[in-house]
Design a protein around this nucleic acid. Structure first.
Lengths: 347, 347
DNA sequence: TTGTACGCGTTATCAA
DNA sequence: TTGATAACGCGTACAA
């Protein structure tokens, strides 16, 4: 261990004293207030640098009631889609002079509640959230809404009406496109491994799947439809069930890529030929889908586009805040695109 | 757009007024100060809930000079290793009542500087940083050190002595083990695709590689050693160079898994048999290495262990702060482990 | 264009 | 065990 002494903190008062000016002038100079003589401003900036002055966000935030900080709550930073969204959000917010506090809920509702509490305590200027799959009650976001702080939900959004802005991918169309693609490839016996129906994601994807089946005159075998946490382990369990009898599916639509990849692994281990005997489609276009062989067909969600729209919307809301606009009433839907790969090939 | 009104903010003064107590007592009750009557505390907590009181971090931080917030600067949240480290850090810090502000530098030195500035302005109680590969000058962290704020560097750490705590993987041993493993598999003509030598990571891995070669009496072909940004694209370029002549290597040690995976893809495209004609080892044990075929041998860095040690060390430093201990003088080295897979198999 | 004076919400210090 | 009061560092009416 080594020792370090606490040193003196320079404040605008120190700059004022050194320059024989009032703290008010220093504050104005540092905040690009119009009524400051150019020379004064230069002197102040120079002295600030010389003294190693750093603004204290807490003091200025307390006074001005603005933090220029945005809070973000997501289930996990390690999910490809979210990692990309974060990167875009951070970069774009930075251009507008906002900072970002990133928090992980680990897909735990109680953690999500605590994080919301903390971010509120930090008085963030806005909140962005991708909720957990189990979040049904959104009351822990009420305080933001009541306080006039814009809230943007993306990806996993409230199913019921809520006074916040919604930005989400077109899950219905994504599922519809993937299912139709499988059908066009000649599949008739299509299984669907989906997530918990508490989430809008899987409600919409399930609806898209059913609609596509119906539109093509195919019946859905309920034994082949799963709603479960989309883990690698659960995917294997589902695959075991699907292939434990003689009547087996000829295609699988998986609601995430982890499940699709597990299905590929299962098929390899069992000697089931993909795509010949079983075609597989996933969701999210995780980089792993392109690496595994056979490469997996998946649905691209354009995370960068999602991130960009989030920040655009946020900046808009923040700018209009004095007029009292805290959310967009219409959900913003980001289009998706099916990426066809070997796992659904007919050649 | 919809409208939302700004509502009244309740403060400890409101609670004090409602309870006919002084704000000081409210503060003490809410902070679990010992000298508060049990009944008073209960009354306060009850009234706080009733009024929807939320502490204002800015005000308490300003006054107490503690934020119970830790800043984290990393190159990218989307890198597997870092994503895992973050998760552990956040969860462990949370147990100790600390919050985490995660910031991405995008591997840009100027962004790293700005983020350091911002986190200092937020007066975080401690800073954790994995620097960019180009960070040679660490002056932007000086203000923390001078202010007595503990700084912990991990993974990418200053090469020269710096008044901060260092936590890193055993890159020398990792590279030594991987190279020795290739040699034990019968390889004699080993190429090394490494990163920029500005970073401790690649200095150490390069040293480990050389030491292993030397220890086994093998000579290093300098045309087969690359120091470059470890991107997918650069990896392909390096592979092209390696295989453009008739004298080709029989093994590749890559300093990250992206490079190793690109090498596998290159080999497939060129009809080079892996592992028969070319053995490949990567670094970091990214999940993709287990998915691609052939699966890639890699070096596990135990990100969860790294994260745990970071928080342990931090909590220790924070607790001892009044005694003036702001860093550990000895670097903390986390062991690594070679994970052998098909890409280096001799069967 | 600059200075004066106050307050943001909380906590530390002292006194009661 | 509680209260009164000042102070943290900054921004902003208002006055000059």
């Amino acid at each position: 261990m080594a020792t370090g002494k606490k040193t003196y903190q320079n404040t605008i008062l120190d700059i004022a004293e050194a320059l024989k000016l009032s703290p008010a002038t220093i504050s104005r100079a540092l905040n690009n207030h119009p009524y400051v003589k150019e020379k004064t401003r230069n002197d102040v900036v120079e002295m600030a640098t010389k003294l190693g002055y750093r603004r204290n966000h807490m003091a200025s935030g307390l006074r001005s009631n603005k933090t220029r900080t945005v809070g973000l709550i997501i289930p996990r930073v390690s999910m490809f889609f979210h990692a990309e969204v974060i990167t875009t959000i951070q970069n774009d917010l930075h251009k507008h002079g906002y900072n970002l506090i990133i928090c992980q809920s680990n897909d735990s509702v109680s953690m999500e509640r605590e994080l919301a509490e903390t971010l509120y305590a930090s008085r963030v200027d806005a909140l962005i959230a991708a909720c957990t799959l189990q979040t049904i009650d959104f009351a822990h976001f009420d305080k933001f809404v009541e306080h006039g702080t814009p809230v943007i939900f993306y990806d996993r959004v409230p199913v019921k009406a809520y006074r916040a802005t919604l930005i989400k991918g077109d899950d219905f169309q994504g599922a519809y496109a993937a299912t139709s693609h499988l059908i066009a490839a000649g599949c008739k016996r299509i299984a669907h491994v989906s997530g918990p129906l508490t989430s809008n994601l899987y409600q919409d994807r399930a609806a898209g799947f059913l609609k596509a089946m119906e539109a093509h005159g195919l019946s859905v075998n309920q034994d082949w439809v799963f709603h479960q946490e989309l883990s690698h382990e659960n995917a294997f369990k589902a695959m075991h069930k699907l292939f434990e009898t003689t009547a087996v599916p000829d295609a699988l639509f998986a609601d995430n890529d982890t499940t699709a990849i597990a299905a590929i692994e299962f098929a390899k281990a069992r000697g089931i030929a993909v795509p010949e005997s079983l075609k597989i489609a996933g969701y999210s276009n995780d980089p792993r889908t392109a690496i595994i062989s056979p490469a997996v067909t998946s649905v691209e969600q354009f995370p960068n586009l999602v991130g960009r729209r989030i920040v655009e919307t946020l900046v808009d809301l923040l700018a209009a805040e004095q007029e009292g606009a805290v959310y967009k009433t219409e959900p913003i839907i980001i289009p998706v695109k099916l990426i066809s790969r070997m796992s659904t090939s007919t050649i």
